[in-house]
């Protein structure tokens, strides 16, 4: 189950700069903690976050241990055409979450 909160404007003026904020819930496991049996619990983190605007990549971020369990990412983009912003998180253990928001550019 993935829980995501995205904050992006619904409309924007052509050529203006918009801020997009995204927060995701993730069962972060550092990969450094021993479990009840004394063995290290395998690492389980988000490794990559990418954003696209109508399919074109506009933001890409590689994540590593010690960033945040539930990372909050904020980035800016130039609103050039109406369309869909796609957000994608991928990580250990086949973690993939995708979220879309529509922005109308006028």
């Amino acid at each position: 189950m993935a829980n995501v909160l995205v904050n992006a404007p619904k409309t924007a003026k052509r050529g203006s700069i918009v801020e997009i904020k995204a927060l995701i819930l993730h069962p972060m496991e550092t990969g450094f903690r021993p479990g009840p049996n004394g063995r290290i619990i395998p690492r389980n983190i988000i490794e990559r976050f990418t954003a696209t605007w109508n399919g074109t990549e506009i933001f890409d971020m590689e994540m590593s241990p010690a960033i945040a369990a539930n990372p909050f990412v904020s980035f800016f983009a130039v609103a050039s055409e109406s369309g869909t912003v796609g957000l994608r998180w991928t990580g250990d253990e086949g973690f993939v979450v995708e979220e879309r928001v529509a922005i109308a550019v006028e």
């Binding site: 829980n3 909160l5 904020k21 909050f72």
Partner: peptide, 17 residues
Amino acid sequence: DDDTANPGMLFVQLGGE
């Protein structure tokens, strides 16, 4: 104060499910 930046709201969302 910002419901899209407060990570506690992720749990509120999960609670809703």
